[in-house]
Design a protein around this nucleic acid. Structure first.
Lengths: 81, 81
DNA sequence: GGCGATTTGTACGTATGTATT
DNA sequence: CAATACATACGTACAAATCGC
């Protein structure tokens, strides 16, 4: 797992989004599957909920995930090209 | 000025965005003019910086404002239809 | 329909970083 | 270099939606 605490000009939420993007694109996170809940992700990755929210917002913009209030966050099916 | 503390099913940031939208659409805030800085707006409207950030994100999505890091937030010129 | 558990959404406060003037 | 203003990041609390029982 990447070290998001490492100093970098790229914001943590962008690096986290890129990390998730790689997992999705590689198929390790399959279309339709549910992601780890946001708050769990936050503690797993060692970042704040705020950062995870920014990350998921970015992934949504990329069309890679879909979020349903009260249910969870899912890998888009089908994935955009 | 609207009372954003009043109970409503509509989130504060949406109501704040609608309020600003009305000011822009009515011409009270002319295209090209600079908005009150975010933190000042927050205290003026009696809401948090977080809420103002959500509000400006929404107004940007609506194409009504443009934000420049370090400079400020401006009413779009021209305004979208 | 209610109740509790789970999960996302909103809102507040605060501190530090970065860009512009 | 200082002042201003937006950007990122952390922490926390409560609200709202969904689901299973």
């Amino acid at each position: 797992m990447p070290d998001f605490t490492a100093d970098s000009p790229t914001p943590v939420y962008v690096r986290a989004a890129d990390y998730l993007t790689a997992l999705i694109r590689s198929g390790e996170l399959a279309p339709g599957s549910r992601l780890t809940p946001e708050r769990e992700l936050a503690s797993n990755l060692g970042v704040s909920y705020d950062t995870i929210r920014r990350m998921t917002a970015l992934l949504r913009e990329r069309g890679l995930i879909v979020t349903v209030h009260g249910r969870g966050t899912y890998v888009s099916d089908p994935l955009p090209p």
